[in-house]
Computed example of a mutant assay.
Amino acid sequence: MTRAIEAITSVVRSLVDDEPKPPLHVGEVMALWTALASFQEAHYLYEAGLNTTQDPDLKQAVQGALDASKKDSKMIKDFLKKEGVPLPAVSEEKPKSNPNDIPPGVKMTDSELANTISIKLAAVISFCGTSIAQCIRSDVGIMFLEVQAEVLKLNATFKEQMKKKGWLKIPPYYYPSGRPDQS
């Protein structure tokens, strides 16, 4: 799936690279600004997660999410600077800490951490899709498509890990009345 999205992005980019770029409209600016603010705040969730989990698989997945988010944030930040858009204020980085020094009532469990990140990733996927649909400038739409593709990969990793560890929260199954027997 990743290769398909990369191929589509590459084709679309080659078709629109030379088109004249009008100024960003307010919706594009708001989407980019909101994405940057959200991604930068997510860094602190990921850093806190790295400080609390001792599960090596989860730690690796959280580090991957942090790295990808920092890459996406830099791309959007550089773009906004180039377009003359002021950047959102951000919180300070979290210092490193020992997971064993965090009181149990404060520390998220691995399941809570994984589900919180998974929910955040799902929201970003949806946000990117909405932003793509609202973009007039193709370069902005492609940027959101690239972010969405990266987040889809991360979400697949989290979901697989959560299934394996029994952390995935599944809503109740729905059986409509009059449904033919599916046994």
Rank of each mutant, 00 (worst) to 15 (best):
I125E: 14
T53H: 09
D72E: 13
Y44D: 05
K81D: 08
Q63V: 05
N98M: 05
P171S: 09
P171A: 12
Q148T: 06
I170L: 13
N100P: 05
L113S: 12
L45V: 12
S177H: 03
K81T: 15
R13Q: 13
H43A: 02
E146T: 11
A42F: 06
A89T: 11
S69Y: 02
L66Y: 10
L24E: 02
I125S: 10
V147A: 12
R3W: 01
R137I: 09
G49K: 07
A133Q: 00
S118K: 06
V147R: 08
R137C: 07
S118P: 01
F158H: 04
L36I: 05
N98D: 15
D18W: 05
L154S: 12
K159Q: 13
L24A: 05
A4N: 07
A89C: 02
E150I: 07
Y173I: 08
P23E: 01
D101A: 00
K94A: 13
Y175C: 10
D17Q: 12
I125M: 13
D78Q: 07
P20Y: 03
W33H: 01
I142A: 01
I170Q: 10
A89I: 04
T2P: 06
T116M: 13
I132R: 00
I102A: 00
T109N: 04
W167T: 01
E83K: 15
N51S: 15
I142G: 04
N51G: 15
L113F: 07
K159N: 13
L50P: 14
C135K: 00
L36A: 03
V90C: 07
S69A: 15
D101G: 04
C128E: 09
D78V: 06
A149N: 15
M75N: 14
D181S: 11
D57P: 02
G64C: 04
N155Q: 14
